[in-house]
């Protein structure tokens, strides 16, 4: 037999350290995030629920149970119902447009063309710019003494008299939707790009060889295969639109006449500016069931490919 190096045997004297143990590491790695998110998301959420059933206000921060009084108050409030309707309409309309434009943009950004870098840079601007700043810029563009849009609309007869673009209810709402779409389309496009890039190349090529034209490939192959990603993009976009108050606040300030008021801005207005935390919390809480619906949508969309992956991985297990 050949000699074996003396050091060539397990160093049984040394013990496995804590850093070798997967179970311990898994907990140690995940726990900080879990603790942090529990403390700063789950706990405040419960606090919001508690506020909604209390008469807490910023003047007298003591907690007293108030039952459903806050809810009764907001149910009787026209502004609330209008804000709820506006929020839903705004979100729904924006998302439809965002997904539509996002899909086009994603396809274009994945295509090869000259000058891609500057185009991508400009396309990313709406997403990366702080939303309040873009809202300021939009207000400057749409509704100011310097607006190039204002005179055009006046010439076209859409606007007349003293009212400006953002001062007229239907146009103001349209502007808010436009800004949301403008802002979220790049984000949706990036998410959709990921989905499109994940389609195996040969699937598209096989469809091409089968004689499928552009539209057939789009509706027969691309959209079905990217559907989960489309849902993710839509729900993420919806969550952002839905929860956003910056655009409305900066662009229209909720006006004219509360015609563009949305729930989050209303919650802020009541809860912080008016100091009625109970009512503010109750309004904010109305976001929750809608949020939950979105969450379920994402879950269903994301879970399916996950499962497929698990199956594959197990199949390979020796």
């Amino acid at each position: 037999m050949r000699g074996v190096p003396a050091r060539g045997r397990p160093r049984a004297g040394e013990k496995a350290r804590l850093t070798d143990r997967e179970g311990f590491l898994a907990w140690a790695f995940l726990l900080p995030s879990v603790v942090y998110l529990t403390a700063l998301v789950a706990a405040p959420f419960c606090l919001t629920v508690a506020f909604a059933f209390s008469d807490a206000n910023s003047a007298a921060p003591s907690y007293r149970f108030a039952g459903l009084r806050n809810f009764r108050a907001i149910f009787r409030d026209d502004v609330f119902w209008r804000a709820l309707g506006d929020t839903l309409a705004l979100t729904g309309l924006s998302m439809a447009l965002v997904v539509f434009f996002g899909m086009i943009l994603a396809n274009v950004l994945l295509a090869d063309f000259r000058g891609k870098w500057p185009v991508r840079l400009l396309v990313l601007l709406p997403w990366t710019t702080p939303v309040a700043l873009s809202a300021i810029s939009w207000r400057w563009l749409l509704d100011s003494a310097y607006s190039p849009v204002d005179p055009i609309l006046r010439d076209a007869g859409v606007l007349h008299g003293g009212a400006s673009l953002l001062g007229r209810p239907p146009l103001a709402t349209a502007s808010v939707v436009a800004v949301h779409v403008w802002r979220l389309t790049p984000l949706a496009a990036v998410i959709l790009m990921a989905g499109l890039a994940a389609i195996p190349r040969d699937v598209g090529e096989a469809a091409r060889l089968d004689g499928a034209g552009f539209w057939r490939r789009l509706f027969g192959v691309t959209i079905p295969l990217t559907l989960p990603v489309i849902v993710v993009a839509a729900v993420f976009g919806a969550a952002v639109t839905f929860a956003d108050m910056a655009v409305v606040r900066v662009l229209t300030g909720g006006g004219p006449g509360a015609s563009t008021q949305v729930l989050p801005a209303l919650a802020y207005h009541r809860g912080v500016e008016d100091g009625d935390m109970g009512q503010g919390a109750a309004i904010a809480l109305f976001l929750f069931p809608l949020l939950l619906a979105g969450v379920i949508g994402v879950l269903r969309a994301v879970r399916r490919p996950e499962d497929a992956n698990d199956g594959e991985a197990d199949g390979e297990e020796p």
């Binding site: 590491l25 898994a26 998110l37 998301v41 405040p44 969550a239 989050p264 912080v272 919390a281 994301v302």
Partner: peptide
């Protein structure tokens, strides 16, 4: 680190992202 709670935990963390600030800022303040 394959744990049985891996996938649910990943889902839960992702869903936290969807909780809007407007739901939390009153409590946060």
């Amino acid at each position: 680190l394959n744990r049985s709670w891996g996938t649910p935990a990943r889902m839960a963390i992702l869903l936290v992202y969807l909780v809007p600030p407007s739901l939390l800022f009153l409590s946060f303040s």
